[in-house]
Design a protein around this nucleic acid. Structure first.
Lengths: 339, 339
DNA sequence: ACCACAGCTTACAACGTTGTACACGGCCGC
DNA sequence: GCGGCCGTGTACAACGTTGTAAGCTGTGGT
């Protein structure tokens, strides 16, 4: 059915290796032969069999991306950026969903399915420091996020602490002092929730504002609904606050809806800031202030690091660590428009 | 480096074919031999090389999914469902983004990259009826959506017309008569916009409400921002309406924010309904009424049809067409809560 | 005049797996 | 007790590609 090198070789009257050399732009092919072969390729509509190439050369031209769930906006947008960056390098992306389950994350790392790809970009959410050994794999690996420190793999991450601190300071700079937090994880130290909460405390301290545990709203998951629930609970408790820091944008958006439902004006009565700079943040009403964690840069860097590892034969040199620049994006939810 | 059948065979003292037979549960292997081999597999940590298997057997265990852009919520949620369904069948998913560009869509269909997979689930957005021949491919293909009719491939789609009609009738049933539309495409007949607008007109007609072109808001793209812009324009024009039908949820959400910004209450002053039942619809404030087009069913059916084609050797039998059941989901944006 | 060498091309093996054909032994039926 | 058959296992080839080594031709140096 499919056209192979043999067919092209027969048509052009050369050996299959010469055709292979033409396809791969090897230098040692004569001009006339090259043209002859190219004509035959054109004529027969030959396309290389990537599976066979992968078997023989070990390079498959595909990478895997493992995220908790594509239905979570942050990961969908991250995946979109990873696919775009990979595409630019001529590589395709195979996506795995781990459901943020520690077991599935650990299992994935040893899955035979991964040997269809040249390497993995892995964004764990359930694994912890204890699983650091599971990351000691024999294929190129880039880890995203901050669940595991000192991993024996390249690491691309964001300034969770500094970003959260900057968000807090931004709120303080607009005159807010009672800043509620939505989405904290009890007792967590590593992980986005723990780090961002630490940044929040740093920001308060720098501004000379006392930390009040009453202002911290906890929720395990980070969906819109969780943000709404936590905010309802804070309101019910009667805690006073003039600002809300959602540990990510979906939490902030959920919280913001509840605030408006309760008749509180954003930002006049309560300012709201999130974290992630989702595509939808600018289009919320009011548009959501947030921290842009450099998602695009993270995606591009992760792809580029992974491709470098693949290129270099996966030699387990020292693990590199890259941190994206962040930026506070002030929008209407923290700064009232000039009226 | 990696453990192969040869290594296992040597360890177990049998031939590699016997090991292969054990791995694949072939019947003609004795009980003791089987146990022996399994022990060796365990001991050496053998995992099959899927690339080699793919080359030899033609079955790669991967399918491709092509969507316009994962950053669009609908496609992210669709992709999540497709990956989940494929995973249940032991198949991985490779994702391609076409950017809704007709050229890239047509090019993708002939891309050699696809031969890493056993088949394609394709959701075109730029192609039209003229490109029907491009869908005549020699690998298993399932097409989603309604851009192309009579395609020579299996087709899974939704009840765009009936769903839109039902949404319209739902608005009518709550007493609305002046129903604005957000997101129409001028002159389009096929495609979601054209079909949903047709359903809207059917719904009006059935209710004996006259169609008023003044109420139709056009926008090429279907992002949140487009919904907001169209709504601002409708308000600026001073058209009177008591309901809004967003041709998808993001349009409806964008429009709803603008309505609230303008001081109009939803649903008291204006009812809003969307289409897609995105995960975020129930968490908007007010929660968004919408049409559940059976996204999960579509994903599962598409995967199942594709796998059937693959199983049956891709024999180009007659193209099948499947249409998901839809359901109007009434939420707060069309029905005021009992107060 | 011959060797060395560069430039181009080819034959062959190999990547790790599975399909095909066949070999071996024992048991059944006649 | 012999022929055939079933159950079990093996050897070999093949999937389509690329790496290696070697072959062939012609040119230039000595």
């Amino acid at each position: 059915m499919a056209v192979t090198l043999h067919d092209v070789a027969r048509r052009a009257g050369v050996s299959i290796k010469t055709v292979s050399n033409v396809i791969n732009d090897r230098p040692n092919v004569g001009k006339t032969t090259r043209a002859l072969v190219q004509a035959a390729v054109e004529e027969l509509g030959y396309t290389p069999n990537l599976t066979a190439r992968g078997l023989r050369s070990g390079r498959k031209g595909a990478i895997a991306l493992a995220v908790p769930d594509l239905a979570l906006s942050y990961f969908a947008e991250l995946a979109a950026a990873v696919i775009e960056a990979a595409e630019a390098a001529g590589v395709v992306v195979l996506i795995e969903q781990t459901g943020a389950s520690r077991e599935r994350e650990v299992a994935l790392l040893k899955s035979p399915r991964l040997n269809m790809t040249d390497g993995l970009i892995f964004s764990p959410l359930g694994m912890g420091q204890d699983d650091v050994d599971a990351l000691r794999v024999d294929y190129p690996l880039v880890v995203l996020g901050e669940r595991v420190f000192d991993a024996p793999a390249d690491h691309v991450t964001m300034h969770n602490v500094a970003g959260a601190r900057a968000a807090t300071e931004h709120l303080v700079s607009t005159g807010r002092r009672r800043i509620a937090v939505v989405g904290a994880h009890a007792g967590e130290v590593v992980g986005s929730a723990g780090l961002r909460l630490a940044g929040y405390r740093e920001g308060l301290e720098a501004a000379g504002v006392a930390f009040d545990p009453e202002l911290i709203g906890y929720s395990e998951l980070w969906h819109r609904a969780d943000g709404a629930n936590v905010m309802r609970e804070l309101l019910a408790r009667g805690v006073e606050f003039d600002a809300v820091f959602g540990l990510n944008d979906t939490l902030a958006l959920g919280a913001m809806r509840v605030l408006q439902e309760a008749g509180l004006r954003v930002p006049e009565d309560v300012a709201v800031i999130g974290f992630d700079d989702l595509d939808e943040a600018p289009y919320a009403i009011p548009s959501l202030s947030t921290v842009d964690p450099g998602r695009g840069w993270i995606a591009r860097t992760a792809v580029s690091l992974l491709l470098q590892r693949i290129e270099s034969g996966g030699g387990a040199s020292t693990a590199r660590r890259h941190v994206a620049d962040f930026q506070v994006v002030a929008r209407e939810s923290t700064i009232s428009p000039v009226s």
